[in-house]
């Protein structure tokens, strides 16, 4: 929670429940769109993402300050959950049968509780792979490529527009193109 949000009373579970149940079809479609969009970037399904975000909002694990738009709150909750799944990639590896010294008997090799160096490396490689796959989508469009790269470097808004040297209309259009191309490239979400 941001420091300036701390003094604002959070919405109660009943408030969130009521607000969501009162959503229009477009509202639900917007939430679904956010979930799908994030599922294109992280190894999680849109449905799971939405379900988990709703659960956290309803059980109080995540609290929505009353001055924050509910869509923005749920969008940020989903983004945070999605990002954590990348951190947790390979956090729960399967148990493997390993042979002992004489090779006759097998034993289970339990995974470490904490991510080790190897796991951290795998996780970082996965993030690098996804990032590169996204950038590769725009190999034929240098401006979009620069724009995506800029966003990934933390640029946004006017700074990013100036960087791409596009006027406002062309810039808005390019942003849409980027979003749509990512969606089309991974229609079923990101699959490692």
């Amino acid at each position: 929670m941001a420091p300036n949000e701390s003094a604002v009373a959070p919405l109660s579970t009943a408030d969130i429940d009521a607000a969501l149940l009162a959503l229009s079809d477009v509202g639900w479609a917007r939430l679904r769109k956010i979930a799908c969009s994030l599922a294109h970037l992280y190894p999680i399904e849109a449905e799971d993402l939405l379900h988990e975000a709703c659960c956290r909002a309803l059980d109080g694990r995540r609290r929505c300050p009353s001055n924050v738009d509910l869509f923005r709150f749920l969008g940020e909750a989903m983004r945070s959950i999605a990002s954590d799944t990348l951190k947790a990639v390979n956090r729960h590896p399967e148990l493997h049968l390993v042979s002992d010294a004489d090779g006759e008997e097998n034993a289970y090799d339990p995974p470490d509780e904490q991510p080790g160096t190897e796991e951290t490396l795998i996780r970082e490689q996965e993030a690098a792979r996804i990032k590169q796959a996204i950038l590769n989508l725009f190999e034929d469009d240098p401006v979009a490529n620069i724009m995506v790269d800029g966003i990934m470097e933390g640029m946004d808004g006017e700074e990013l527009r100036a960087f791409t040297e596009l006027d406002k209309t062309a810039f808005a259009s390019k942003r849409k193109l980027i979003k749509r191309r990512i969606e089309k490239a991974f229609p079923d979400g990101w699959t490692p």
């Binding site: 990002s83 990348l86 996204i134 966003i151």
Partner: peptide, 26 residues
């Protein structure tokens, strides 16, 4: 245990935030 995110992970997070923003602003 909190671990520092890699630069690539942070890059994806920024792109994700930007996409979410675009959807919220539609």
């Amino acid at each position: 245990m909190t671990r520092k995110k890699s630069n690539d992970h942070l890059a994806l997070d920024r792109l994700a935030a930007s996409l979410v923003d675009d959807i919220l602003n539609m």
